[in-house]
Amino acid sequence: MRAASNHLQLSDISVSFSGFRAVDGLNLGVARGELRCLIGPNGAGKTTCLDLICGKTKPSAGSIRLDTRELTTLEEHQIARAGVGRKFQVPSVFRELTVRENLEVAHCKSVGVFANALRFGRSTETDGLEKLAELVGIEDRLGQPAAYLSHGETQWLEIALLIAQNSELILMDEPTAGMTAQETRKTAELFLRLKGRHTLIVVEHDMGFIREIGDVISVMHQGRMLAEGTVHEIEADPEVQRAYLGSGGISHA
């Protein structure tokens, strides 16, 4: 998995929070267009791993490369510009702005402050954004502030924001949390459509969801990579079962 051709390559990444090693010598390689699931018991370091990739947390050692670009030395906005989008575990949208405005913020061709000060015409973009809202089923709420959306709709909005942002690499932290079974299925369909055009890393607990979308699954435990493989390989892996002991086994995690 550590081939040089990987789209994203984390090598020997470590980070500690006041003495606690949240991630400890982690290696992870993801090929372009792949949909990779990242699972593991609570406190395994999954969210920290995403934080490290998108620059929210800086590693104390190791390197993260997106193609040939080293990400660890960049600031968050530079990493985002390099092609990394992130969905947060707690849905994070602009609550005071309308749904449409949220999508406009996410969809940007230029990020410069002066260029955007002279940008008024939105007619060309609006069409695409409306289609996007339709895709995630919030098209009739475009004019409303995001604060009025339900939890599920907020999740959808943030997913729509990431599609609008159109990053090469999309990091999803528990995208189906708080969704109904039907909504979860719809999310799975959407992710399968994104696969190929985008590279996705999905942190998830819902094994049913993972069975639907995952080809390769990476299992983290105590800040390290424990195992990597297909759903069947992972479920049969005795080490993985041991890691999940006490939390009811992997299928109920």
Binding site: E75, E76, A80
Partner: peptide, 9 residues
């Protein structure tokens, strides 16, 4: 959140 859309806040 704005940072993660690529804007220099």
């Amino acid at each position: 959140r704005v940072r993660y859309f690529g804007y220099d806040v």
